[in-house]
Design a protein around this nucleic acid. Structure first.
Length: 579
DNA sequence: ATAGGGTTAG
């Protein structure tokens, strides 16, 4: 009889279920299966994991095994946890608890993986208590998995508690904690942890994964200075030879408003991967360089040695680039050329593309004839376009659809009301506002922030909470005098309420981004770029004011809004007023 | 009967 490890090697080499079955038949006839536990478990593992992933077959095998070991269970658990239905791992796990076998560290590890992928907090709690009862607390790999599971379930406090109480933490432990904080919306704390890890006294040294997570924190913060710190650290430690680190750098620079640096990093990559292209196309799209995004896409898919197959993310990136640059035909061409299946987001891009171009009925037809169920966001996109083009009929039609779908987003009401307001149909404006009041829908407050020497200065509309608010308002007055010379006329059509023109001007006057820009002007040097981050989309009036400030004060202003960047210089914006 | 299991950019 052949050595057992030969069978293992053969099993390992199987690329299809048919090959597995042949081998299985042979092993059964030879009397190896199901008797030899090692081979049986190996067979289960190979069946359960990629590239075979035949979990049905694994379950059959498992059902025909009479004396099961923990490892038999683990092989299946592992497969379930990695499958696209991780819930199966959590329903299977109790069978192990009720069997004569005991769960070991691996069983817990796979179950925790499943609860992480499902963001299922209750099972993370349960598995944590079992981990304690079974005495696995000295197992730092298992605790790392537990931290990850807590973090991915949104329970950062417990993740931190486990992290803090661990006697020994290696780089991976720090990494799960840092990326957990990033994904949980606490990029500041993530960055602090990265700094701690960089300290010469720290027992764990940051690696590629750490740097990627730290860069993602900086991207989320829109903090180019911190990003540059991470970049120099990566360079010093020679971690920037890893293409994933370079890709994270592209993303960080682009989200921090520095497209040029993002381009520089992209150009330095010898063999850009799919993700490199995606990050770069996305960066160009974000900054309104739609034509460049389009050509980079063309370059990427050009037949030849470096040809790369675009995926769903690529199409989203290039389509949004076309959107923000008004490249309607290019966008449609790309959409038509898609060979992979389209998601609702791709349709969203096309609706946006047509809508922005004023082709509202075509956009409507796309929504009603597409093979997917339209979602709220899709209709909201069309509602936004109806508002832009003042199409009352379309706005009413779409609002009705939205109401039917049970949407009660504040934006829907505000947009519809704005359509009416622009036509001075105040009765309807009042009706919409009354509906908002009765359903207790409130407008999400707009805010902007400016980061200065590591301190974040936040402004709400009409905010007087800042310690220098008097100076800020004085600066606003100065700005309004100065920009009138350049022909400023307030764009009051975006103001929701039926109030007098003068009050409307005042409502616009104190928009958070204006306060932020005024603060930027009084607190930075004459040549410095002012960076503002805003939670909503920038309004037309603020956009106009930003352009005029950039001219009147000879300043570069970069505004990152919800969807993209605007770079104002010399009286013009990088978006060419199309956004 | 051993080992196996953790982090990662668009």
């Amino acid at each position: 009889m052949a050595q057992l490890h030969v069978y293992e090697t053969l099993l390992q080499k199987c690329k299809a279920l048919s090959q597995i079955k042949q081998l299985q038949a042979y092993l059964t006839v030879a009397g190896v299966l199901p008797a030899v536990a090692g081979i049986r478990v190996k067979l289960l593992e190979v069946c359960s994991l990629a590239p075979i992933s035949a979990l049905d077959h694994s379950q059959l095998l498992f059902a025909h095994t009479s004396s099961r070991t923990t490892n038999d269970y683990n092989a299946l658990l592992r497969g379930f946890a990695a499958s696209d239905e991780p819930l199966q791992a959590l329903t299977f796990y109790p069978l192990l608890l009720r069997s004569p076998s005991r769960p070991d560290a691996l069983s817990l590890s796979f179950a925790l993986k499943a609860s992480a992928r499902l963001s299922d907090l209750p099972s993370s709690f349960q598995l944590h208590s079992q981990l304690l009862r079974l005495g696995f607390t000295p197992d730092s790999i298992l605790l790392t998995t537990l931290i990850d599971s807590y973090a991915k379930s949104g329970e950062l406090q417990d993740a931190e508690k486990v992290f803090d109480e661990m006697p020994k933490r290696d780089a991976a432990t720090w990494n799960v904690m840092i990326s957990g904080l990033v994904q949980g919306g606490r990029p500041n704390d993530a960055f602090k942890l990265f700094e701690q890890m960089c300290d010469p006294g720290s027992p764990a040294r940051p690696n590629e994964v750490t740097v990627i997570a730290a860069l993602s924190a900086c991207a989320q913060l829109g903090a180019p200075r911190e990003g540059a710190v991470v970049h120099s650290y990566a360079r010093a430690q020679h971690l920037d030879v890893d293409v994933r680190v370079l890709n994270a750098l592209i993303d960080m620079y682009s989200k921090c408003g520095c497209v040029d640096q993002a381009v520089e990093v992209f150009r330095s990559i010898e063999r850009p991967t799919l993700v490199s292209y995606n990050a770069m196309i996305m960066a160009l799209a974000l900054h309104g360089h739609g034509t460049e995004a389009f050509y980079l896409f063309k370059e990427m898919v050009k037949p030849g040695a470096n040809e790369i197959e675009p995926d769903a993310v690529t199409f989203l990136a290039v389509l949004s680039g076309c959107n923000h640059a008004g490249l309607v035909n290019e966008g449609l061409e790309i959409f038509m050329s898609m060979k992979i299946s389209r998601t609702i987001k791709h349709y969203g891009c096309i609706v946006d593309l047509l809508g922005r171009a004023g082709r509202l009925s075509e956009a409507y037809n796309v929504i009603t004839s597409m093979p997917l169920e339209p979602d709220i966001v899709l209709w909201q996109t069309l509602l936004g376009a109806s508002k832009t083009f003042g199409d009352v009929n379309m706005a009413e039609l779409v609002s009705k659809k939205l109401a039917e779908m049970g949407s009660n987003g504040d934006g829907d009401y505000v947009l519809l009301s704005n359509v009416y307001a622009a036509k001075e149909r105040w009765a309807e404006v009042g009706r919409v506002r009354e509906e908002m009041r009765s359903k207790d829908v409130r407008k999400v407050p707009g805010f902007s922030f400016v980061e200065l020497d590591g301190v974040v200065h936040k402004f709400l509309n009409g905010d007087k909470g800042h310690e220098r608010w008097r100076e800020i308002y004085r600066m606003l007055d100065e700005i309004s005098v100065k920009i009138k010379v350049f022909g400023y006329v307030p764009e009051t059509s975006n103001v929701l309420h039926d109030i007098g023109e003068e009050d409307k001007e005042n409502a616009l006057y104190y928009h958070s981004e204006k306060l932020a820009m005024a603060f930027g002007l009084i607190s930075t040097q004459d040549c410095e770029t002012i960076q503002v981050i805003k939670n909503l989309r920038i309004c037309g009036d603020c956009h106009l004011v930003a352009k005029l400030i950039s001219k009147a004060y000879d300043r570069v202003i970069i505004v990152r809004d919800r969807a993209r960047f605007h770079r104002f210089e010399g009286g013009a914006c990088s978006c060419n007023d199309y956004w």
